[in-house]
Design a protein around this nucleic acid. Sequence first.
DNA 1: TTGAAATTGAAATCCATTTTCAATTTGTTG
DNA 2: CAACAAATTGAAAATGGATTTCAATTTCAA
Lengths: 150, 150
Amino acid sequence: MAKKASAQLSEYLAGQGLKSTSQRDKILAVFVEAGRHLSAEELYARIKKVHPGIGYATVYRTLKLLAEAGMAEERRFEDGFTRYEYKTSEGGHHDHLICTRCRAIVEFENERIEALQQDVARNNGFLVQSHKLEIYGLCSACQGKKNKPA
Amino acid sequence: MAKKASAQLSEYLAGQGLKSTSQRDKILAVFVEAGRHLSAEELYARIKKVHPGIGYATVYRTLKLLAEAGMAEERRFEDGFTRYEYKTSEGGHHDHLICTRCRAIVEFENERIEALQQDVARNNGFLVQSHKLEIYGLCSACQGKKNKPA
DNA sequence: TTGAAATTGAAATCCATTTTCAATTTGTTG
DNA sequence: CAACAAATTGAAAATGGATTTCAATTTCAA
């Protein structure tokens, strides 16, 4: 998986007249490895452990690059941080359930909701380009607990 | 309508041990008058024309206050600005269609989508607190036009 | 009327993100 | 392989929307 990802990146870079660098490869590897929904900050923290030389700005820049390459998706939830999600070529569109207490994020897909969105858009004369559905609430683990922790 | 709004604000302020001020009244009046989805910046611009003495920070603070009072709702779309929407006591929840070209915002309500969201949440053990659905696309007026303007 | 507490405007600060810039690296060309 | 133009990097500075600070002013209960 990581190998395919770096190949995909190289291909994109070559096609754009951009250059492959060890930093980009390393950042991508950690990003893919880490799982989903990382903020630049979180990713930088992970990178730093393995590759202390890599700078802050490079992580930000690479994340933006991956988004342009179609390999990552930018997400802005309500906590002020931009998060990036690794986008496998197969993985279809999905939306998010977000726990307001522990910040857990659960992904879901629902075709009926998507279809209804198309209907709504059509009824208003809109041509849909993208959409964003976030459901905020308490996950099952947090429903029993007391009020906000820290 | 504006009268009811200022009465509602006064009531909230009194209940919280906060104070009524002419600035708050004026800001609220312009906010209610202006219609929906104003950023603090936009509201400040409007305020400045009528009440040049009112400061920037006060507009921000008042908007946050109105949100706390339940009289306004904070919305963050993808353009980086926090927008506020005047919330009438009757007006139910609604979502948004947003034109990516001209930034027009159309509101809609769809009970079936809401119901499906509840289903999705329940299936994942979530207790819903709020949600956010934004559909981005081209409005009918913009579909015929060439690429991005400015 | 008085004074403690809240509020204000202006400016300073915050903070995630972006940009600048000199130094370094890449990869193409000869 | 050498040489160079263009891209990239890291560190630090800048950006920009939003928030906070602070001294001065206003509110409102007593």
